[in-house]
Design a protein around this nucleic acid. Sequence first.
DNA 1: GCCTTCAATTGACTTGTATCAATTCACTGC
DNA 2: GCAGTGAATTGATACAAGTCAATTGAAGGC
Lengths: 269, 269
Amino acid sequence: MRACDMDRVKGLPLFAEIAADTFRVATAGAHLQRFPAGTMLLLEGDPVDFLYVLLDGQVELHGTWNDHETVLAILRPVSTFILAAVVLDADALMSARTLERCEILMIPGDAIRTAMRLDPRFAMAVSRDLAGCYRGLVRTVKNHKLRNSVERLANYLLTLRAADNSGNVVRLHHEKRVLASLLGMTPENLSRAFSALQAVGVNVQGAVVTLSNVVALEALAKPDPLIDNHAPRGGDIVAEADAEVWSSEWNRAGGVTGPRTASAGKRND
Amino acid sequence: MRACDMDRVKGLPLFAEIAADTFRVATAGAHLQRFPAGTMLLLEGDPVDFLYVLLDGQVELHGTWNDHETVLAILRPVSTFILAAVVLDADALMSARTLERCEILMIPGDAIRTAMRLDPRFAMAVSRDLAGCYRGLVRTVKNHKLRNSVERLANYLLTLRAADNSGNVVRLHHEKRVLASLLGMTPENLSRAFSALQAVGVNVQGAVVTLSNVVALEALAKPDPLIDNHAPRGGDIVAEADAEVWSSEWNRAGGVTGPRTASAGKRND
DNA sequence: GCCTTCAATTGACTTGTATCAATTCACTGC
DNA sequence: GCAGTGAATTGATACAAGTCAATTGAAGGC
């Protein structure tokens, strides 16, 4: 593995604050692998032998039932996945598939569990990571049970805008059919939802979406910090856990005068 | 706090295998409290100062948006809740309300986080608990995105049957309007879903549901171990994490010849 | 005893979403 | 260049679920 890849892994909140020894234990049997687009990395129901760390590319997590499939999450670098199954040494509940050419670090599950037993700081980091993922799913469930498809799309666009710190032009990172499944609708309905949002100044041109009336869009979307996490991703905020902490601090500060960057909250500077 | 209550807390997987010292640290500032039915224990958005341990009664976790409310989970003793928020010292994403008279142990969040730093076994236990809750939510999302309301109800009844080890007569533990919200439908639609299930031998009499044709019900419900956890609750299986491990072992063993009790899987007896 | 209250049910209707089919569009390979 | 593939869109229609309103039913208070 290249040194710069190792640095990126060490940069993950999961591994950031652990002892050098622990890091060596955890990554001893790890190997870096490249996969073409459309590769099934893991099938739901399979035993999970590795913790996956996505270093480059995009991975989709999805679930299947009765010949139907639904996208549960889409991951972008750098992020880990199926940590929960690794911790419990349980079978996967979701399948994982590469959406593009990917570079993935695979760390044996045994090594992770051993490292947790050795280093309370690492075990703590795992807990924080899992807590972040858990809260992400709570948000997902609320989003799906409380909103209709147009509202979900509207909030998705606003979250994207906040995450990428883009102005009034956001770029969709995925194919529309994948996005539709993620948002819990059919591709046909996503198209119709986009047309419905024209009324509030949303225009789509391929993957480029222009928001010419954010005020109206927000009036329709009614974004809520307890459902939508508007933490600016990238920079200091890479893991869900960081985004959760950012969100809480933002809310406590009133959502306007709060910490402007993640570092303002994380460190006392 | 009564000694028998302390024993019940110590019996939780979260606290079962930790050092006596750690347990003392964790529970030092804890206090037992009783609440009448309908009490709001926690409002979404509030900072979370305590880990709650439900010793008696029922608690509902719900979320709100735009004047609508949805039930996200219903807890029965003995179980902990809002562990994720405690670990991250973040604000609650869900509100908690007692459905009946409850007895709840409240453990300061600081004490939990301190204990995690001191004792890797405790940190590990927290990770396992969170991993179990996370996987429970993954199941919930799949359930909601892949099934319609009748299918969700059918599977709910089958899961209840497996959990309580009841024969062909299951008892609903909650009011129907609460159940409807948990299953993601209106009370009116729950009524209709029950009538739809008459065709497969389901009859309702208040809280008592008789399943006179389980084969037909299963044919309709198509239960799936990757969505529905049929672990028999009570006995050895109290936390989500245990149920997850049970489920994996059950599947690996083929779902028929597998471990008959949780202990068969957990210990090598 | 009766009255109140609220959960549960039932029917009529509206809205939301999925499905099916046809067409357009963009990219890829030859 | 052009055909072929699959994504995206659009329209017509069917089905699922929510809403509104009225009724029934059961538990609790006086």
